[in-house]
């Protein structure tokens, strides 16, 4: 049986997906997630439940996904290969399948040294390509990496990460080809602030033979200082100085300006051939997401 999800239906059809990222909560009170789900119910295709984003601890993506489901919002379970070995990943994926969670976004994740626990042991038992292949096989062949059989009827719709703003696409495109060959059915980009560079990358992607749907991430930057930090921190975030300057100049209206930037970015990316959806992230300002969505 193939589990039908809103996201799968739209991306395999001809629609345009609208996704958002749920708040990452470092605690046991997930009411912010439920509130967020109620705010966006019926307005989004699905919502990402992040997995310790930025290598900072938050309540598990599985728990957040369950909260989203309970509010009638379709989750996208994010899984990094940073914190769990193959046993834990397989166990969590089977658990997700059992709970009715089918959309899965697989990433390597930011290195622990960049997050809240820089002294943590990093895992990376498998990499994102390997885990995409293994997760795909759990559904298609009903076997674990070990070859052991799994029961039930698992079905997943798997996505992968892509950074269009790397300076050596010839090195990074083969990885994306492998992610898709391994079973990824959509790619989610790093935050886009430069639609022209995204367009060039989309063109290169097409030329390299990768045809799967691309979802462009659009970020509402919290403030100029954070933007500057993200731009500097070497996390693949290409944030132009002009954008940071705009937000800084706005002073106490910086959130309004950040929303305006996000709206402009959505308008710029949604017309690009190959872009099949947008994912809106607004760390710490999630309630601003409906205002950004008005641009779609």
């Amino acid at each position: 049986m193939s589990m039908k999800t809103n996201l799968k239906g739209i991306l395999e059809g001809s629609g345009f997906a609208v996704l958002a990222a749920a708040p990452a909560v470092c605690g046991t009170d997930l009411s912010a997630v439920s509130d967020f789900a109620r705010l966006l119910k019926g307005k989004v295709t699905a919502v990402f439940a992040a997995d310790n984003p930025g290598a900072r601890v938050s309540a598990s993506a599985l728990a957040v996904s369950v909260k989203l489901l309970a509010e009638g919002v379709e989750p996208v379970l994010c899984m990094t290969t940073r914190d769990r070995n193959r046993l834990a990943l397989e166990s969590d994926l089977l658990g997700a399948g059992a709970l009715g969670i089918a959309n899965v976004q697989i990433v390597n994740g930011a290195h622990p040294s960049l997050g809240s626990h820089p002294s943590a042991h990093r895992v990376y038992d498998v990499d994102a390509v390997q885990w995409i292949a293994a997760a795909t096989r759990i559904a298609s062949e009903k076997t674990l990496i070990s070859g052991e059989a799994v029961s039930g009827d698992p079905s997943f719709f798997i996505g992968a990460a892509a950074n269009p703003f790397v300076k050596t696409p010839e090195l990074h495109l083969p990885v994306l080809k492998k992610k898709v060959a391994a079973g990824a059915r959509f790619l989610v980009t790093a935050p886009v602030f430069d639609a022209a560079r995204l367009a060039t990358w989309l063109d290169n992607l097409k030329k390299s033979g990768v045809t799967c749907p691309v979802i462009a991430t659009v970020a509402v930057l919290p403030d100029a200082a954070t933007a500057r930090h993200l731009a500097r921190a070497g996390r693949g975030m290409a944030i132009p100085d002009s954008v940071i300057a705009r937000i800084e100049k706005a002073g106490d209206k910086s959130l309004d300006e950040a929303i305006a930037v996000a709206v402009e970015n959505i308008q710029a990316v949604k017309a690009l051939p190959g872009i099949r959806g947008v994912a809106i992230i607004a760390p710490g300002s999630e309630t601003a997401i409906p205002r950004v969505m008005e641009a779609i």
């Binding site: 940073r82 390597n108 930011a110 290195h111 040294s113 960049l114 990093r122 990376y124 990499d127 994102a128 390509v129 390997q130 990460a161 892509a162 950074n163 790397v166 300076k167 050596t168 090195l171 990074h172 083969p174 990885v175 492998k178 790093a190 921190a233 070497g234 996390r235 693949g236």
Partner: peptide, 27 residues
């Protein structure tokens, strides 16, 4: 830094690793 066997991660910037601008990206 992530012992990736199938190519670089998206944090590889300008030839250097996301953990430090002084660590070359081996990929």
């Amino acid at each position: 830094a992530k012992q990736l066997l199938n190519g670089p991660c998206g944090g590889s910037v300008d030839g250097f690793c996301e953990i430090s601008p002084e660590t070359p990206c081996v990929w």
